[in-house]
Design a protein around this nucleic acid. Sequence first.
DNA 1: GGCGTTTGCCTAAACCTATTAGGTGAATGC
DNA 2: GCATTCACCTAATAGGTTTAGGCAAACGCC
Lengths: 191, 191
Amino acid sequence: MARAGLTVERLARAGAELADEVGFDQVTVTALARRFDVKVASLYSHVKNSQDLRTRIALLALRELADRAADALAGRAGKDALAALGGVYRDYAREHPGRYEAAQLRLDPETAAASAGVRHAQMTRAILRGYDLTEPDQTHAVRLLGSVFHGYVSLEMGGGFSHSAPDTQETWTRILDALDALLRNWPAPAP
Amino acid sequence: MARAGLTVERLARAGAELADEVGFDQVTVTALARRFDVKVASLYSHVKNSQDLRTRIALLALRELADRAADALAGRAGKDALAALGGVYRDYAREHPGRYEAAQLRLDPETAAASAGVRHAQMTRAILRGYDLTEPDQTHAVRLLGSVFHGYVSLEMGGGFSHSAPDTQETWTRILDALDALLRNWPAPAP
DNA sequence: GGCGTTTGCCTAAACCTATTAGGTGAATGC
DNA sequence: GCATTCACCTAATAGGTTTAGGCAAACGCC
């Protein structure tokens, strides 16, 4: 009986590829077993269950995304950094739609706290050091940037902006312009 | 044989309730049949299949959301209208998390075009009439607002901002302030 | 190099969910 | 009062998930 050489890491990686090919919600223990030419039950020696598998794929995607972001941010500041971070999310979603979906999976609090998710928040906060925001405003701005990037990418991926002029690249750069302007001139609370 | 009185509308409505209770991805033909105390196969006289059922729930949610938005926008303009629209999305997601998830379902283009989704875009555009934006910029701004609202609500729902100070209500109002300021002073393209 | 232990994969079986085909009986319409 | 339609049924197939228990290859050890 030849062994297929399954490991948790290989399963997660293959699951991520499968997600990009057929969509994250189509990633199934059965499909993954087929891909390794192995019986379904064999996977259960490596992952606890279907949910566990999905979680591992999500963690992989978060890690990849954070690594890319760290690379892209190296040596950049201000609007340059802002555009770089946004670009990383957008490009990753286009190249790896299934992984990007996976990164959106709801994790339970402890798992989330131990994930690369915290690096994402740290990097966003680092970008804001290039702008002049005091502490509570910095948090508000972190949340705004998270919302815009996540919201834009997921709407664009879902075809929300599809086939309407002007094209989405133009909108994307103008949104980055707008965010930069906003951060350079963050308004005081409305009266 | 007593009849349960199934119709497509009742199925969609019950499916929406079920979604709010157990999550949209747990809405299954089987669970819905149980709820009506009817055999699973009976539902197939009313909906084509599981996907069809989900789509109908999504369309219901989009319609409800658009109705609420139209109500909230009546008689408002400018920042008032902006806050009202955002509030509708945020409140709906909190009251009806399953329906809100459903509203995010990817629809095929023809279905989307016939859905209440177009009313949402129209309403967002209507709000922008209170600001001074020329045509291509209006589209960019529509997309920005869509991104922020959708992104913020889905991150907040997913616990993305959880247990960190300051509280999310504060952030929400400051984001509305920021968007208002941005729209009143929309920047020209960066050089 | 044989020997026990661990490890990796298997078979088998139980249990969900989705979907189709082919009924039956109650309500409806002329 | 009969035909038709409609609402629901039984039965069967096909996949996905998960657990229990088994066997054989690989590993550690003397």
